[in-house]
Every structure is written in C-alpha cells, then in structure tokens.
Design a protein around this nucleic acid. Sequence first.
DNA 1: ATAATTCCTACTGGTTTTGTATGAAATACA
DNA 2: TGTATTTCATACAAAACCAGTAGGAATTAT
Lengths: 146, 146
Amino acid sequence: MKISTKGRYALNIMVDIAKNAGQEKYISLTEIANRLKLSNKYLEQIISPLNKAGLVLSTRGNNGGYMLSRKPEEYKVGDILRATEGNLAPITCLSDGSAKNCPRKNQCTTLSFWQGLDKAIEEYVDSKSLQDLVNETKSTKKYVLK
Amino acid sequence: MKISTKGRYALNIMVDIAKNAGQEKYISLTEIANRLKLSNKYLEQIISPLNKAGLVLSTRGNNGGYMLSRKPEEYKVGDILRATEGNLAPITCLSDGSAKNCPRKNQCTTLSFWQGLDKAIEEYVDSKSLQDLVNETKSTKKYVLK
DNA sequence: ATAATTCCTACTGGTTTTGTATGAAATACA
DNA sequence: TGTATTTCATACAAAACCAGTAGGAATTAT
C-alpha cells in the first residue's frame, strides 16, 4: 500500500513552486530539481500530468518554466496525488469500475469494507491543501539568531 | 496505492473460515480454495503469515486444517492486513522507521501529511472487525423463496 | 502403509517502478 | 539570425515487486 515516487515527488515539486514562484513568475525545472536534489529528467515526467491536468502553467523556451495556476490554498493535496498516481483506490475493481458489474458482487463480503477505506483515504487527502504543506516549513529562526 | 492480492485473499480466507468453521473445527485449505475459486498452493503462502501471527490455528495431517483462534468480533481487519501486507504505511520512511533519523527531517514539508494519512488508514482498518465482514453476507432469501 | 494435510523453499513469467537517453519544438535574447 | 535555454514527447532499460507454480518434506488419522 505504498505511494510511488511520482506522487511523493509531485508534492515536493508543488511545494517548491508554491514557495519559490507561486503565481508570480515561471521557474525552471532545473532550478526545482537542484533544490530538491532529484533528477531533472525524471521530474519532467512527473510534472507532465500536473501540467496536463491544469495544476501548473508552463512556458517553453529561454526563461521558461512552470508556475502555479491557483493559490496554494485552492489545491487539495488529493488533486495532486490523483493527477500523478492515477487513482488512490486501494483495490482495482474500485478504480476501474469493474466492481459495479462484478458477477460475484452479491457474494462479496469485503466490497463495502474497501469502499469505506477508499472513502477514508479520499476524505483525508482532500482535507489538506497545498498551503497546509507550505505551512509545514520549519522555522530557521534559531540558526539566524545564533 | 493498491492492496496486493495477499491482503485481499487473506480477508477472504478469514471470512470463509469464520463462516464455515469458526473456532469449532479445522477445515482444510483445499476446501477453502475450492469455495473461493483460488489456487490452493497460493493460499498456502497467504495463510502462512496468518498462522505465524497466531490469527489462525492449524493441525497437520489427515483431517487437518485451520480454524480461528478468536471470535470473529475480536479480530480487527487491520490485524489481518498487517500480518499479510506487512505494513500499511503509505511511504517507506514511515514503515521502516527511517523518517525518525532522516537528515532532511526538518526540511521535509510533507512528513506530517503522510503521517496523517497513515493514521487515517490505520484508524479505519482497525475500526472494522472480521465479524463486520461476515455480516456483509447478502441474504439469499429471494432465491430460496422462489 | 496410505492418503491427506500443513509446512518450507525455490523458481518463474509478467508487470510496475524508477529512472536514463535522445531529440524535437518553442522562446528569449544577443 | 543564430544560439542557448527551456518544455515536450517518446523510447529504452535495469531493478524490484507481484502473482502464482512446483516439488517435496513433515505430520497425522485411519
């Protein structure tokens, strides 16, 4: 029951953009990758679905890059994860819809349990916003003061 | 974010035992596999950790098999899933404990989000019992009456 | 003895994950 | 206009993981 690096890195990317560009300007993936210490090329593949889903805006060419399309508080974390992970449903028959016309539907004693788990997950990830993550940034005050 | 067949089949096995043997007698895996229409050999591998974790009791030899070690209402579904899936934590650094001494711990803006997701999942799976699943069995009355 | 059963471990084909690699298309700027 | 920079698209590949199959040893009732 693991989230892949795509989902994890996608959150990191979005937090990085929120903190370093927001909706003010475009920043390049190279810049983001350097800060996150992750492969530029791999991040390209991860930001692509975010771009297609309209979660970020992009421009090509020199001085191009990405920026947020909304305010950080207007992104549910669930939006970001679903765009990159595909679907958070814990079992396939829920995510591909096959549960609805499953021949064993009436004999299945676990379906509603899984539906409940799916709901618990969706409700949690949709209860948090990108701004909530940005707010997690630890204060560096003690180092500054010293 | 998918549960593997191990976790899914483990629940099916436990429900089957609860419905057909409970703590009264031992039933063989062959019998269970036939009812579930799953591979006997594969189920052997799945029931093994359940046995080692003490969630079922077993006897070998002729007329051997498995039975529950407790009443169905005394199993949290989470117990069964954790025994077979290993761990339900959505990211590795939570399940292997590496988050605690992670060098980037203070810069990590997503850790508490993932901890919260983990908690939401654990709380849900621990709020349901094996008996809850058994109770999901649909009535076959309409067929009987017909 | 024999048949039935759990228990143990190795193997395997397929899929998914986690990237790398190559290059085309677009853009700013000198 | 040419060059550097950037996104965008697609192919490739190693490693890990998943979902089972296979063979046989140990145990037990009859």
